[in-house]
Design a protein around this nucleic acid. Structure first.
Length: 636
DNA sequence: AGTACGTTGTCGGG
DNA sequence: CCCGACAACGTACT
């Protein structure tokens, strides 16, 4: 199941993680004609699938090539049944195949499903399985907001909706989704045994959680002589290929990644398939099969939460993709940094990131759709800022993460600067709970709670504020909050972006700090975004809405919002806090340089003590936001 | 050793 | 809207 092992979307993190993808919501300007201008669908049956050349149960440990390069293997209008019978000649036994869904919750461009369908032989059956891990899905009463210990309610809902949609699509093809509960590895191995499965298919996954889980399952399959097919289809490229091309080390800059990556092998091959039907599902024996559960059935009762503007599933994802793509001028001129992070009625990006995260939409199909628009619009933007560039960022982070041990933490991570971040839970909690006293920051964090999604640049602002800009809290802490709450949170992209924003890796210009006051103001001078997500401030005059503590008491009274009572005072003064942060970063960089990146725990402690003495730090405000905030206010 | 470059800073001035 | 100052990092390449 989709348990991500380490709690990690910066969207920018999500970039995608920090949500890189955007789409308009319903765009009334999209016509049917435009919507159809996407690459043609092709029949699955037409393609002769080649099974991996490696031995049974061993292939795919590093992931197979996503698709054969040989486009001759792909012809239109082939005969489904013919190809099935071809496959059957090479098998004997039960002829049963199992398709294990984890991410990749889609029918289109799904090589593992194709292979599973083709792998059914004789009178065999196809078992499409999804395993719900209770740790990932069931309520944790101790969590800081509704949801499980690992996932916020918004992502759990999105996943359930995606499963429901997948089940519906499978049923239309004469199959269904077999939902089971339990520890995924255990459940799956049990299925393989009980159902006499001879072929196991699932999408290859680079996340450490799956690396470990899949190893276990593959070991069992190998011992039981079950054939395993595990294609790379979540990303554009196989991260292992890129790392190999670079002499075994992942590229650490986007530009070098681009050079190594080049064009994907399948760039002009048809990826879309239509299944006329799927092999039927066999007897499930004593296995406990459930319908896709509702939130209530999982134990989420009496929770009042407004619905975020994202419905999960392949159907909705493809609809949004077509809407986004149909606006060709928008696609061709897309420049990520020019988007407006305060736009919420109509976000400035595709908002496809949640769909890419769960694989409801294929990133490869998205890639081809964009290229298709580019062929008709010769003048278009380029990576890193273009729409295509956003997809490549996603692959960039997947590649670096896959090739970097301990990528999701500072310690033991070779590409991560060792910095003496503080471990102050009070600062972290105020940030997480949208109580920093900076309306721009608190509005963004509120959007995170309510929607499970914010614009990429909004993610930048709050990540910078928590780490190198103001609070100097460890980036891993903020990453964990994003990881749980973002619908699109993604292990590689989220940690990558947090390192980026905290100047721990990839980006190092620590003097460039987002102002929690001016940055939002330049996009949204009236503060509409703040008024929407922080209704307590809705009547604050625009002159004060970004800095309500500067409003005269009479104005606060009239706006029915007394600062310090109805809305918090700023927890730190940005001017002095950011100066302290810069000083600390400079000292930490110096130490890293001196020790050539090999900084011990003790070295960091010594530096921290030294910095605490020299900086008027925000690290010890134990008794209060207001008093330390007030103190700082006086100094400035 | 030196140079160019790097998806998305802020502020003040023209 | 664009400019430079601010203060100055690392990576990649020559």
């Amino acid at each position: 199941m989709v348990v991500v092992v380490v709690v990690a979307s910066l969207a920018l993190f999500a970039l995608l993680a920090f949500g890189p993808f955007s789409i308009f919501y319903s765009n009334p300007l999209v016509t049917c004609r435009q919507a159809e201008q996407v690459p043609q669908l092709h029949f699955l049956a037409s393609r002769r699938h080649r099974f991996p050349a490696t031995k049974k149960g061993e292939e795919s440990c590093l992931g197979d090539r996503p698709l054969e390069k040989d486009s001759n293997a792909i012809t239109r209008g082939g005969n489904y049944f013919q190809s099935m019978s071809m496959a059957s000649s090479s098998f004997s036994g039960s002829g049963n195949a199992l398709m294990w869904f984890r991410k990749g919750l889609r029918i289109h461009d799904n090589p593992a499903l194709e292979c599973a369908s083709r792998g059914v032989t004789g009178g065999g059956f196809l078992y499409p399985v999804f395993v719900i891990d209770p740790h990932y899905m069931e309520p944790d009463p101790r969590a800081s907001s509704p949801g499980s210990s690992r996932a916020g309610l918004n992502r759990i809902r999105f996943l359930l909706e995606s499963l429901k949609d997948l089940d519906l699509s499978l049923r239309k093809l004469g199959s269904r989704l077999l939902v089971m509960k339990g520890e995924p590895g255990e459940v799956l191995i049990n299925c393989l045994k009980q159902w006499k499965v001879e072929k196991l298919c699932f999408e290859y996954d680079t996340d450490p959680y799956y690396q470990q889980l899949d190893m276990r399952v593959k070991d069992y399959a190998s011992a039981a002589r079950i054939e395993v097919f595990s294609p790379v289809s979540h990303t554009l490229f196989n991260p292992a290929d890129i790392i190999q091309k670079n002499g075994g080390r992942p590229p650490v800059s986007y530009q070098s990644f681009l050079k190594l990556a080049g064009e994907p092998s399948w760039a002009s091959s048809p990826l879309m398939t239509i299944f006329p039907s799927l092999p039927s599902v066999g007897d499930v024996g004593s296995s406990q099969i459930v319908e896709v559960p509702t939130l209530e059935e999982l134990g989420y009762v009496d929770i009042e939460m407004e619905l975020p503007p994202f419905r999960g599933g392949e159907s909705e994802g493809l609809k949004r993709l077509r809407e986004a793509i149909s606006n060709e001028k928008w696609v061709a001129t897309f420049e990520k940094p020019k988007g407006d992070p305060s736009a919420f009625l109509r976000p400035a990006t595709t908002t496809l990131s949640p769909y890419l995260k769960f694989g409801c939409v294929s990133s490869r199909y998205f890639y081809q759709c964009i290229q298709d628009v580019y062929t008709r619009n010769k003048k278009h933007t380029s990576p890193p800022v273009s729409l295509l560039g956003q997809l490549l960022w996603r692959d960039f982070f997947y590649t670096v993460a896959f090739g970097t041990p301990n990528f999701d933490q500072m310690r033991g991570n070779k590409i991560c600067k060792q910095i003496p971040w503080n471990d102050n839970d009070e600062l972290l909690t105020a940030w997480r709970e949208a109580k920093t006293g900076y309306p721009w920051i608190d509005a963004i964090m509120t959007q995170l709670h309510k929607w499970g999604w914010m614009h990429h640049l909004a993610r930048h602002c709050v990540a910078c504020f928590l780490t190198r800009g103001d609070l100097f809290v460890h980036w891993e802490k903020g990453r964990d909050v994003f990881e749980r709450l973002l619908i699109d949170s993604d292990w590689a992209i989220n940690s990558g972006n947090w390192m980026w924003l905290s100047c721990s890796s990839f980006f190092y210009q620590y003097n460039r700090i987002y102002s929690p006051i001016s940055f939002g103001k330049k996009y949204d001078p009236n503060g509409n975004y703040i008024r929407h997500f922080l209704p307590i401030l809705k009547d604050m005059p625009k002159e004060y809405i970004y800095e309500p503590w500067t409003a005269p008491l009479s104005v606060q009274t009239k706006a029915k919002c007394i600062i310090g009572k109805d809305y918090p005072k700023p927890m730190v003064s940005h001017d002095s806090a950011s100066k302290d942060c810069k000083q600390k970063l400079a000292a930490a960089y110096e130490l890293n340089k001196k020790l050539n990146g090999v900084v011990s725990e003790e070295d960091l402690k010594v530096l921290q003590r030294k910095l605490d003495a020299t900086c008027d730090s925000v690290l010890n405000p134990v008794h209060s936001h207001s008093s330390s905030g007030a103190k700082r206010q006086r100094r400035s």
